[in-house]
Design a protein around this nucleic acid. Structure first.
Lengths: 150, 150
DNA sequence: TGCATATAGGTGTAACTACACGCATATGCT
DNA sequence: AGCATATGCGTGTAGTTACACCTATATGCA
């Protein structure tokens, strides 16, 4: 009945999402730590293996700023897991996973799997499926102002 | 039928969660930009207004590393929105929102509300409710290795 | 061919995140 | 009271994220 009754029904969606992301990231990172790789880097490596891509293409797929991707690739390049070559278009760069990167991926995969399964078993397969469905729907629905913004 | 059939059923939960968090954060930040405040800072301010807390207490609530909170508070202090005083225990610090902070909060609230409502209307109230429920359950279930880790 | 424009990518800056570690203060035990 | 230990917090270091802007190359048009 108060004057501010029109406040949204839930807590800040963004804050809750970030909080969960922090929690989950810590869990995955803890599992991956023995292989000295972070879940963000692991994901980059996994996604990069499928095929070669330019920075812009990869950034678009990941819905990440180009400059962010550039910086996130740097440690992978430093570790020798990824190499960045000049593309057909001289301005572009072609991202590829090195042999060492594939080895690292292979070594880290079981640890990632443990983290993934652990989370799944703790939350329950049902809940995880629902969460993934929610995320999928949200990503399909929400606007994506990545890169240059209107 | 392959040897690696035991891979988890979904994509990396952590990566998907982070991707959505990036997307949603960009949306909220875009709405809040006119007030020169980010959603992370806005959340900090909102949560800090309820009562005074030490850094450790606040970090525990936010499930954020103490050092992270320290650093995230710095820009708020620099803007004069938050003040940090020495607590009863001389080692501790008492975090409080200043008058300027409350003004900033008041000015930013409608923008936050717009973002929150926009997201809710795009996803549908139903879906947002379900997402929040999923997040709540996950936060209640998953272990929280914040701070010193076992 | 040559210039204007568009595009690919990186840098500067700044904030968010966390672990390891160190400093200072508080507490407990003798 | 004095010392060992525990606790609160910041710093060092490193990675993640994004916007503004710059450089270099490619493209399109005269």
């Amino acid at each position: 009945m108060s004057a501010s009754a029109r406040v949204p029904s839930f807590g800040c969606t963004c804050a809750r999402l970030r909080k969960l992301a922090r929690r989950v990231t810590r869990i995955y990172d803890a599992y991956l730590a023995p292989q000295s790789i972070k879940v963000t880097q692991f994901s980059l490596l996994v996604n990069a293996t499928s095929r070669e891509r330019t920075v812009s293409e990869f950034a678009a797929e990941l819905e990440m700023d180009r400059s962010t991707l550039s910086r996130n690739l740097a440690p992978l390049v430093a570790q020798g897991w990824v190499s960045i070559a000049i593309g057909a278009d001289t301005r572009s760069r072609s991202i590829s996973v090195t042999a060492a990167g594939r080895r690292k991926l292979k070594a880290a995969l079981p640890l990632w799997r443990k983290a993934q399964c652990e989370v799944e078993s703790m939350l329950g397969t049902e809940s995880v499926a629902q969460l993934h469905q929610n995320i999928r729907q949200a990503l399909a629905t929400l606007p994506n102002p990545t890169g240059k913004h209107a």
